[in-house]
Design a binder for these strands. Sequence first.
DNA 1: TGTTACTTAAACACTT
DNA 2: AAAGTGTTTAAGTAAC
Length: 485
Amino acid sequence: MPCQSTDESDASMRQRLVTSLSQSFPGSALSKALQCMNDDEDMSDPLSSSCFAELRLDKEAPEEDDELTSLSWLQDGNLLKDIHCGEDENGDSLKENSEIKQEYGFPHPSHVPYNPQKHINSKPPYSFSCLIFMALEESPTKMLPVKDIYQWILSHFPYFQNAPTGWKNSVRHNLSLNKCFKKVDKDRGQTIGKGSLWCVDPDFRPNLLQALRKTPYHPYHQLQMLASPQPSRYIQELRPQPLAPRLGPNSISPHLFPFLSRRLGGPSLDIDSDIKDVAQTLVSLKSWSQAKADNANFAQGLKRKIGQMPSPRKPRGPVICTDNPSTDHTYSITRVEADEDEYIPGSPGSSIDDEYDFGSDDDVDDLSDAEGVGSRPLKRKGDNLDSEGESGVDEVDGCVSNSDGSVRTPIKRARFLDQAKRHRFEETSEEEKKKIAEGADALLNLAGICLSRPRAFAFGAEKLDGTNEYPEDSDPGSDSSADDS
DNA sequence: TGTTACTTAAACACTT
DNA sequence: AAAGTGTTTAAGTAAC
């Protein structure tokens, strides 16, 4: 399934990209930024400043087959299965259409950026608790009756408009059972008719943020942010630590996607700056793809290095409060410790972000928190006693029991901290691996997108209105090497 | 293989 | 009484 190749010069490619994106975002800062960049012809090798610079200059892969440069190895492992090339007369990729027409109710394919307004047949990749959380967070008062939660979900995820009504039951079920949500006291004079107002329990908000971070398709939120001049606070809080973030399969490389990455990882809320970043990234990707074709060792070395990395299916958890899934946001969650590292919503450096910081030397305690050392058992709503079999904490000596029933005593905590230190050392010594992994993640992302939607650049080319119109021939992988794969 | 997270379905009580 | 809401139980799937 060869992709269309292009003989266009980089300049003309850039021009077409600018034109297309400008049309997609008429009058926006992005258009201006693109035009500004277009006027500035001095686009000196943007690759050199990206994470791929190191990959491109990799000299350690002299042997093996040349066809690796064609990225065909991506397909060897069926990584690109179900990915098709081509467009229909409307400019939509055939792949896109095939997904729209896919059988109803299936989970959204992981290799395609999720657009809830477009992939209306795809089951949203968010759990109900995440959906409820988003609804509540986007509410001005941070509290909603179930009816309005239904409405928010319906309006933001049209999938549910045709879904069986059972999903409403699931929403209510979640509200009832999920400890992250609680009813607002009725004595506040609200007259909302039936039922109560529901809100997020502040104690568990970090858990929900964490859960949302763990879900793929953060870019959806990023796009929402672009469209919204004042993004919801929780979106801002979805960011990881800027220092040496761990990138998961769906994470954004700060080098390749500075805009998205900054949205997830940086404090800046300078929209224009970010838009310019994403525009530059788009052009950089094109330049990168051409530079890549010139280097026969590129993909080969990348492949070899990826082989040293953990399985791509295994999430390397960009964001975790703990390694223990039970400490997430579930019905039996463990509370994020507020005593040692009190969570202050929206405040920089609050606990929700600490788990990202592997870059400082004094963050072992942060790690410990991230591992749930300071976690506290969760009691079910209305319960005065810990549930049978649930983890518990000894309030006297601070021993913490894990969800597996083991108790983390102070001694165990010390051992654990030692493990955390060792882990961090390994992290440091694996610095190169991490960089390669970041590049690999981004490359897989890029390759999947470029082959499935040959005129799209990751998430950046998606229109803010969600209509998915892509710049023509802006595909960084549409060079001949990738076409043959 | 067992555990956990999550979804889905269903029943039932309560409220408006 | 009907509809909506809230709670609870149970079964099933998927990932780890």
